[in-house]
Write a protein that binds this DNA or RNA. Structure first.
Length: 669
DNA sequence: CCTTACGCCATTTTT
DNA sequence: TGGCGTAAGG
């Protein structure tokens, strides 16, 4: 237990030690936030608080896993998970996984079946489109994505159709779609991501005895990245912590960059209003960056109005100046970056030391091309995600249908995959049978039409699905997947796809690789026991979208330093650190983005984004902007970003541009 | 029901 | 520039 304080500074110790009552920790970048959080969990347990009474909530699975691992490391050898000495583990999970756990037990209060499935973004969009089409709405006039966003926003505000009061033409239209959508979800026995949280809050609000049950379980609550909570998440925490008020919130208002996803910075700014007795602790010592980098960050952020004032400091050296490069165009910029990397690798750096950050994914291409031509290994984080790939979604749809035969969205997806001559007409007939179990409906329909060609196809499809579903509990998840691929002749289907379409789709090999990867993930569930194996698998997969999905499964041990440079958006870089950070495209219009420049609040968010980007760097920070940029086919001329002007100029040095104004005009695109 | 052609649109995205 | 969704023809 003395270990618990060994590597902590006085502020961190203070934050760890206050056991009861509300605590707010404002933790600057690189100030040991996760350390503080994990040590606190360990400390609580060492003070004989039952682990089962502790709830730690994070936003990402990655963060949750990190906290779990580090808590375990702190507690062993005195406690060890597998020795069974620890009667129960603290609950450490994401908002969504924690709520999922609650809902599996309690959702019958809302007349859902506890076996509900979770719809991801794709499913939700598909359902919205269907609902809109049925209401004969023009999908061009009303963008379904936009409708999804609006509904998502309403749910985050805890407004369900029954208490949403539309007051103009558009909101009445929205309300109709929303109501329909929600009914369809219920019919499919499905919840979307927002429901996981909003419905949990709903149950708590309407069933005080249920709420109290959980309040008594989780007497000690810790919330990570508190600045990123949305209203529903905030409400959840507030309800849960209401009885004992042992809430520990940690975060950094200056790193709030998810307002566009309904994160509300006011939650952290108003913490003291919510809990007047709250202790507030500032973690201002930075262990990550040089003095110069910190000075740059601090100067930039001081241009924002709404923030908790704080002063970061570090014992680290001054370090080098921040290098700023003016490039001619995006290719010149990319070449500068690769050249610089090669130069630094001659000195004392490994390729894994470098991160190239950008505001928009569209910027990655030019950089990627330069990396390829120089033969530098790299990885791109973000962009197309593993579980969004067609081949993965197809197989998952079969699995989900097996797990939940009412899942209409999955059914629609695969009814003609691989091509079997079934489509909209059949779908309409299925719906007309009013049989919620779609497999049964298929059987009924097949028996009604034994003569026709379509009838035969129906029968075949039915038998295929029946076969698959019958086996789902007999065999492992991995075998189940293999079965699907084999029985549907999916490989042939993929070959056909790549042959018929043009080059962009001829990535058969890659698709098969992805399926193999899916099998690898599935193998983890083989020993879970096939009874729950499939359900467990699907559940985790759905909650495990995003970046870490692949890394987590395939090479969890490689998380540290890969032997590749990393290309990613600034948003995905939050929480990470690299010895050398490039920020590409620091131009007016790009960063800050043109869509944000006229809205003061959005501009402040861009500035926080810049703050996040800059503070990823440990030793070296290199910024670049291009005079001209080819974007979406046309050429833009941008000025250097105002953020450069907001940096202390004595910490900056300009790289030789190697161009003069005459020369610029001679460059041929 | 499937294929092809064309027009549209394009921040960021922890679950 | 290119990826996607809709509309038309086979």
């Amino acid at each position: 237990m003395s270990d618990i304080f060994k590597n902590l500074n006085p502020k961190q110790i203070e934050a760890v030690k206050i056991i009861s009552g509300p605590v707010l920790v404002i933790s600057g970048p690189g100030s040991g936030k996760t350390r503080c959080l994990t040590h606190r969990v360990a400390f609580l347990i060492s003070e004989n608080i039952k682990p089962a009474n502790i709830l730690a909530i994070t936003f990402t699975n990655k963060a949750a896993n990190e906290v779990k691992e580090r808590v375990q490391a702190l507690l062993s050898p005195s406690f060890s998970a597998d020795s069974g000495r620890l009667s129960a583990w603290p609950t450490i999970g994401t908002f969504h996984s924690v709520c999922l756990r609650i809902l599996r037990r309690e959702i019958s209060l809302l007349n859902y079946k506890p076996s509900f499935t979770i719809f991801d973004e794709y499913d939700r969009l598909a359902l919205i489109k269907k609902v809109m089409a049925r209401q004969k709405l023009d999908l061009k006039q009303y963008n379904p994505q936009m409708i999804v966003r609006k509904i998502s926003k309403l749910k985050t505000e805890l407004l369900y159709p029954e208490n949403y009061k539309p007051n103009d033409f558009f909101s009445r239209l929205l309300a109709r779609i929303y109501e329909n959508y929600q009914t369809e979800l219920k019919n499919a026995n499905a919840l979307d991501f927002d429901d996981l949280i909003a419905l949990t809050v709903k149950i708590f609000k309407h069933n005080p005895q249920v709420l109290e049950k959980y309040q008594d379980i989780w007497k000690y609550i810790l919330v990570d990245e508190y600045q990123d909570t949305s209203f529903d998440q905030y409400s959840l925490i507030k309800l849960l912590s209401q009885k004992y008020k042992n809430i520990f919130a940690i975060g950094d208002d200056a790193q709030s960059i998810y307002a566009f996803r309904e994160a509300d910075i006011r939650n952290i700014l108003n913490f003291q209003k919510d809990y007047p007795e709250a202790k507030v602790i500032f973690l201002e010592q930075n262990y990550r960056s040089t003095k110069n980098i910190l000075a740059v960050a601090q100067n930039i952020i001081s241009n924002n109005q709404s923030q908790v004032p704080k002063t970061l400091w570090t014992e680290n050296g001054r370090g080098e100046r921040i290098l700023v490069k003016e490039a001619l165009n995006e290719r010149d910029e990319a070449d500068f970056i690769t050249l610089k990397i090669e130069e630094l690798m001659q000195k004392n750096h490994n390729i894994g030391d470098f991160a190239i950050l950008y505001r928009t994914h569209a910027q990655s291409r030019a950089i990627e091309e330069s990396f390829i031509s120089c033969g530098l290994p790299y990885q791109i984080i973000g962009g197309i995600k593993f579980y969004e790939r067609k081949e993965i979604k197809d197989i998952l749809a079969y699995m989900r249908l097996a797990a939940n035969p009412s899942d209409l969205v999955s059914f629609e997806r695969i009814i003609n995959i691989p091509t079997r001559g079934l489509g909209q007409t059949v779908l309409a007939k299925i719906t007309n049978t009013h049989e919620k179990n779609l497999i049964k409906a298929l059987d009924i329909l097949a028996k009604e039409n034994t003569k026709t060609k379509q009838g035969r196809a129906l029968k075949e499809f039915y038998e295929l699905l029946y076969d698959l579903i019958n086996k789902k509990t007999d065999i492992s998840v991995a075998s189940f997947i293999k079965n699907i691929i084999k029985k549907t002749d999916y490989e042939e289907y993929l070959k056909g796809l790549s042959a018929s379409k043009n080059d962009a789709y001829s990535n058969f090999e890659e698709r098969m690789e992805n399926l193999k990867e899916l099998l690898t993930v599935a193998k983890k569930y083989d020993n879970v026991g096939s009874e729950r194996g499939l359900d467990n698998f699907l559940e985790e997969i759905t909650l495990l979208q995003g970046v870490d999905s692949l890394t987590l499964s395939a090479n969890a041990n490689k998380v540290g330093v890969p032997d590749k440079a990393t290309l990613m958006s600034i948003h995905s870089s939050k929480g990470l650190e690299f010895p050398v950070v490039f920020i590409a495209g620091i131009e007016e219009g790009l960063f800050p983005h043109s869509r944000s420049t006229f809205n003061p609040q959005e501009l402040e968010e861009e500035r926080r984004l810049c703050y996040v980007a800059v503070t990823r760097a440990k030793e070296k920070l290199i910024l670049s902007y291009a005079r001209r940029r080819n974007i979406f086919g046309s050429t833009q001329r941008n000025l250097p970003s105002r953020f450069i002007g907001e940096m202390p100029q004595d910490t900056i040095e300009y790289a030789a541009s190697g161009i003069d104004d005459d020369y610029e005009e001679k460059i041929y695109y």
